[in-house]
Simulated scan of single mutants.
Amino acid sequence: MPMGEGTIVWSSLGGTWITAPHVVELGADKIALFTVGTDHIIRVRWRIDGEWGGWTVIPGEVIQVPHAVAGTGDCLDMFAVDPKYSIQHRQWRAGEWTEWQSMTGEAGGPTLTAPRAVWSTPTRLDIFVLGTNLGIWHKYREDSGWSDEWSSLGSLWLTPPHVLSRGPGRIDAVAINSQSGLSHARYQDGEWSHWQTDDAISISRPFAVESDDRLHVFVLGENRGVYHYTWDKEWTEPTPLRGTVISPPRAVAWPDGGIDVFVVGQNSAMFRRAYRGGVWHEWQPIGGRAFSPPSIIARDRTVELFVLGADSAIWHTEVSVD
């Protein structure tokens, strides 16, 4: 893999993997990196105080990379889909993994992708999944008890939702509907709003961040270009960011209102584009050869990127932003 542009250096974390990586930050000095081997079994690698440990096995076959979120303290909730297309849940607590627990109830039939999870309050974890009937389904855990049933958020969706919480008891969900339109729904005061849809054609799963109390959403259009939307009670006209890319975009929002977007270009190299003071700067090359969208953690104006490389290993770099 090329070392990138300028002082940006990519390093290999080794292995031979069949899925994109998924990274979760438990605190300033601890992260967990997940991927899946050729045996369809999850591996995790921990970095504690800047030092990487070895890859360890989490037993049980899966069909996709798991999705994990950090809770309070040294705790993780991880969700995966087994070869029978059932949703499985496991926790990291007090330095140990619990056993796999099957998520009971009907979630629109068998499931192909792991649920996406978000903490909507300090004690409530909400999860969302796209079933094979193309319905989006929702379930939540309050303290230690899961809700009895999955609730439907509509049918005939092309992508799983991307979700985030912008305050206690508030959730924003964005997804692509069956007409390829970018749609948004909001959970507040115990109720879901109706979906609001933009008419433009979108062809990738959207990615959303919050900045300046607005929702900023990034998605690929028909021409495989990146488009930037904002949602503040209604959709704005999309801003084309030009260029042609081969991966769905990922983004990071900063407290000062800045945003950085990361994509894989046609040459398989990573690129970054910065949004500062309401103005988009030009694309900047980061180099490397990525065969997956990046998994990202960000802190102190530094972004860490993890991707699946051309050699099926996981590669990593750090990018400082202004």
Rank of each mutant, 00 (worst) to 15 (best):
Met1His: 10
Pro2His: 11
Pro2Met: 07
Gly4Ala: 09
Gly6Ser: 12
Trp10Gln: 02
Ser11Met: 09
Leu13Asp: 07
Leu13Met: 07
Gly14Gln: 06
Trp17Ser: 01
Thr19Gly: 01
His22Asn: 06
Leu26Ser: 10
Gly27Trp: 00
Phe34Cys: 04
Val36Asn: 05
Val36Asp: 05
His40Cys: 02
Arg43His: 12
Arg45Val: 03
Arg45Pro: 01
Ile48Val: 14
Glu51Thr: 13
Glu51Asn: 06
Gly53Asn: 03
Thr56Met: 09
Thr56Val: 13
Val62Leu: 04
Ile63Asp: 03
Ala68Ile: 00
Gly71Tyr: 03
Thr72Ile: 02
Asp74Glu: 15
Phe79Tyr: 15
Asp82Ala: 02
Asp82Gly: 07
Tyr85Ile: 01
Tyr85His: 14
Ile87Cys: 10
Gln88His: 06
Ala94Glu: 14
Glu99Gln: 10
Glu99Met: 08
Trp100Val: 04
Trp100Asp: 09
Trp100Ala: 06
Met103Glu: 07
Gly105Ala: 04
Gly105Arg: 07
Pro110Val: 12
Ala114Val: 02
Arg116Ser: 12
Ala117His: 04
Val118Asn: 07
Trp119Ala: 08
Pro122Trp: 07
Thr132Phe: 01
Asn133Trp: 02
Asn133Tyr: 04
Trp137Gln: 04
Asp143Ala: 08
Asp143Met: 04
Ser144Ile: 09
Gly145Tyr: 09
Trp150Asn: 07
Thr159Cys: 09
Thr159Ser: 15
Pro160Lys: 11
Pro160Glu: 14
His162Asp: 08
Val163Ala: 14
Ser165Gly: 08
Ser165Met: 11
Arg166His: 14
Asp172Gln: 10
Ala173Arg: 05
Ala173Glu: 07
Ala175Tyr: 01
Ala175Ser: 06
Asn177Glu: 08
Ser180Glu: 05
Leu182Asn: 05
His184Gly: 04
Tyr187Pro: 02
Asp189Gly: 00
Glu191Leu: 05
Glu191Trp: 01
Thr197Lys: 14
Asp199Ile: 13
Ile201His: 12
Pro206Gln: 10
Arg214Leu: 06
Leu220Thr: 09
Arg224His: 15
Val226Asp: 01
His228Thr: 03
Glu234Asn: 06
Thr239Lys: 11
Thr239Ala: 06
Leu241Trp: 05
Arg242Phe: 12
Gly243Asp: 02
Gly243Tyr: 02
Pro248Ile: 02
Pro248Trp: 02
Val252Thr: 13
Trp254Glu: 05
Trp254Ser: 06
Gly257Phe: 11
Gly258Ala: 14
Ile259Lys: 10
Asp260Asn: 13
Asp260Ile: 00
Val261Met: 13
Phe262Lys: 05
Phe262Ser: 05
Val263Phe: 11
Val264Ile: 14
Asn267Phe: 08
Ala269Val: 02
Arg272Gly: 00
Arg272Trp: 03
Arg273Gln: 15
Ala274Ser: 15
Val279Arg: 08
His281Met: 09
His281Ile: 01
Glu282Val: 04
Trp283Cys: 13
Pro285Lys: 12
Pro285Gln: 13
Gly288Pro: 09
Arg289Lys: 14
Ala290Leu: 12
Phe291Asp: 07
Ser292Ile: 04
Ser295Leu: 11
Asp300Trp: 05
Asp300Cys: 05
Thr302Ser: 06
Glu304Ala: 14
Leu305Lys: 12
Ala310Phe: 07
Trp315Arg: 13
